[in-house]
Design a protein around this nucleic acid. Structure first.
Lengths: 405, 405
DNA sequence: AATAACTAAATAAGAGTGATTTATTTATTG
DNA sequence: CAATAAATAAATCACTCTTATTTAGTTATT
């Protein structure tokens, strides 16, 4: 029933709150969970060193987390002097989260465990997204989702996250939906609708930003603290990670990367979305009389479109390169992550071309960021949706530090 | 003797530290100081409400801060039911800070009090900055600076901040200095040199970012939580404020706004510094055979240059507008602050023209930010330098939360 | 092989700190 | 004088830290 937006409550001027013992303890527990998640396996003394907390404090916290079954102990490590150390790791069965991705052609519902493994997934396709259909889909699916869990684990579902394009109703033309249907999106509050179905807290986030969250929490990368993430789907969007936590912004609209001004082909300035999105590739195909529908139907195989894909990649890389250089002029990101709804081979080529395009620009005064492909895979958005309640309840972020009960 | 970089230690991967009671208390004290600074005057119950802390806790904290003479009580407010409430405000004599600005034509040294009032200021002019001269200037001035304070207050000087252009040595041509002199800058570590003169901690920051810090801490604005700041001087730079605190970035080089790509006059892309800086105006004047030196000699009166200033403003506003739109595509800043070394009338015109230029761009998908002039005045950079130790020791920021002894 | 010395991990007990709760005092209005 | 609000003292509670102890191993010596 609870309705919550995600990391920062947009609109709400979040007052600076004081801190008390329970807030401190909660912070330390989240810190431990975050560290164990990042490193996979840690022993207590390592955590004590990393956090600067005393061994005894860590001992107490660990026992509590183990008692809640959020952490589990491994086989003691022998062969070193002294008492064997007990490695601790995230207990996959510790908590579960539901993620809903609403896309242009389909919706996905996933149930993930505390490690980010998908325990159950449901999918519906459609010509265009309709609120009623999606609400019905979720309503029918919810019970089924949790029923795959053992009886005793069902009360560990901690919340539902939704990932969908920002202001979906503005895109009726691009999505190919009747205006009337898309107008219904404007009037409906999907978050409240879904919140009404259960007692879970419900979170809503822009789909590209959610994908960024998935990359942050579940991605395979070496503890990146700051990065900017671009997700190239039907549209383009992204997310910002600062100091190891997602920055959603004052209004929840940080990372509106599609609106970034970039030089157009005719010398005028365009928005990045006009160069770097699947809509552009689709337009190229249609202009040449080719049916673009395999782009969506077989997102792992675009082998029929080689010529157009190559042309498209050049445009996308050029646009991205400008956006990247502008980004690092503002925030000195060490890494840029590129991802999107495309075959992984195409994504690798995009990364390569973007690297080249960045180096072709004037970089004086800047550190060149590393440019890498996303590591989460095609379910990034649904996984990111599910990561919203996880992050809110169990991980530290810059803002939630001192505001527990 | 201590050497410290400012808010985040660049290069150092700041580990996530745990929290303990002293960290909690320090956080709450900084929180109270920050709130009183922001609101000017507050009574204890207001602070208790704002922070969510109990009245008793605030009572204890306030007594401690009053005991340290960081806060001072005002006349009790009578005329309401109940015991009169005691308004508390920042005690200007509570702490003092020294700021050094190193510029292209001059250096300034200021001593400010806890309220940001300048208690003493020294100035030297030069044709170009030389390390030895500046070090000698500081060495001779330090004793004089503190001697203006009453005997009992001299040990309340909390540190020295330095504001100077990033990698000064790269600009020998623009600065008009012999290459050999500027190369000495490359080898010298001004921070260590100055740290060696006293036991004060010394902080170093890019001059434009320091000006941004001054705007954040001493500016007259309504509690802005997120803004981007542009400082147009000989070069251009800026700063980023997120969640009410300066974001210096991983490498300390966030806000390298001069490197932002913007459309050039010939259709190609240029860097913002090539459009929005006093160097550009200077170049325009020289190209027309006019002596530009009054720009620096009488920074409050550019009345002789009306034609060129008008032309320059158009170029600057167009460049800034692009940079602003790119910025809000990444971070949804609610406000843009423009400042620089120019007469205030010119600055007002710049704000006006920039507002217009922003509205002429494609803003789809973005919230238009408010664009305002800086409120600190011509000493922004020196004041910002002095604000670095203040901020580090007495104000909350997102990172310093939990890392006290 | 048996034993002693050493080391590291884990944790129990007690101390210390700081926020909260409860109760009381103080100052003022009506 | 009753009602009310601000301020705070005392008692309580929660959490981390320090110190000391236990446990379980390795390494060196006999």
């Amino acid at each position: 029933m609870a309705v919550s937006s995600g990391l920062n409550e947009p609109g709400t001027l979040q007052q600076l709150r004081g801190s008390n013992q329970s807030g401190m303890r909660a912070y330390n527990e989240r810190l431990v969970l975050s560290l164990v998640r990042r490193h996979g396996v840690l022993v207590k003394t390592e955590i004590a060193q990393m956090t600067g907390l005393s061994a005894q404090t860590i001992s107490v916290i660990m026992r509590a987390l183990e008692g809640e079954e959020l952490l589990k102990r491994g086989e003691p490590i022998r062969g070193k002097v002294g008492q064997p150390s007990v490695p601790l790791s995230i207990n996959g069965d510790g908590a579960f989260f539901i993620g809903l991705k609403v896309g242009r052609r389909s919706a996905d519902l996933v149930l993930i465990d505390f490690l980010g493994c998908v325990r159950h997934a449901l999918h519906i396709g459609y010509a265009y997204p309709e609120p009623d259909a999606i609400i019905a889909f979720v309503r029918n699916a919810l019970a089924q989702m949790t029923s795959v869990l053992d009886e005793g684990l069902r009360d560990r579902v901690a919340g539902i996250g939704i990932a969908m394009p920002y202001q979906l109703w503005n895109w009726h033309e691009e999505i190919g939906a009747p205006r009337a249907v898309m107008d219904r999106w404007r009037r409906i509050d999907l978050r409240s609708e879904i919140a009404g179905m259960s007692s879970y807290p419900v979170y809503l986030q822009n789909d590209a930003t959610a994908a960024c969250a998935a990359e942050l929490i579940f991605g395979h990368h070496g503890a990146r603290q700051d990065f900017i993430y671009f997700y190239i789907g039907t549209f383009i969007g992204g997310g910002i990670v600062l100091n190891g936590s997602l920055y959603a912004g004052r209004s929840g609209n940080a990372g509106a990367l599609g609106s970034m001004p970039v030089p157009g082909r005719d010398g005028n300035s365009e928005q990045l979305i006009d160069q770097a999105s699947l809509m552009v590739l689709e337009g190229m195909l249609i202009a040449d009389g080719i049916d673009p529908s395999p782009l969506w139907r077989t997102p792992d195989d675009w082998s029929g479109f080689e010529v157009h894909v190559a042309r498209w990649l050049t445009v996308v890389a050029r646009g991205l390169a400008h956006a990247i250089v502008a980004s690092v002029s503002i925030i000195d990101f060490e890494t840029v992550v590129l991802d999107g709804g495309m075959p992984s081979a195409v994504r690798e080529r995009l990364v390569e071309e973007t690297r080249r395009a960045v180096l072709a620009l004037d970089l004086q005064g800047l550190d060149v960021p590393a440019i890498e492909a996303g590591t989460v895979g095609p379910i990034a958005r649904a996984l990111g949706a599910a990561s919203l309640p996880l992050s809110d309840k169990y991980l530290i972020d810059q803002h939630t530090l001192m505001r527990e009960a």
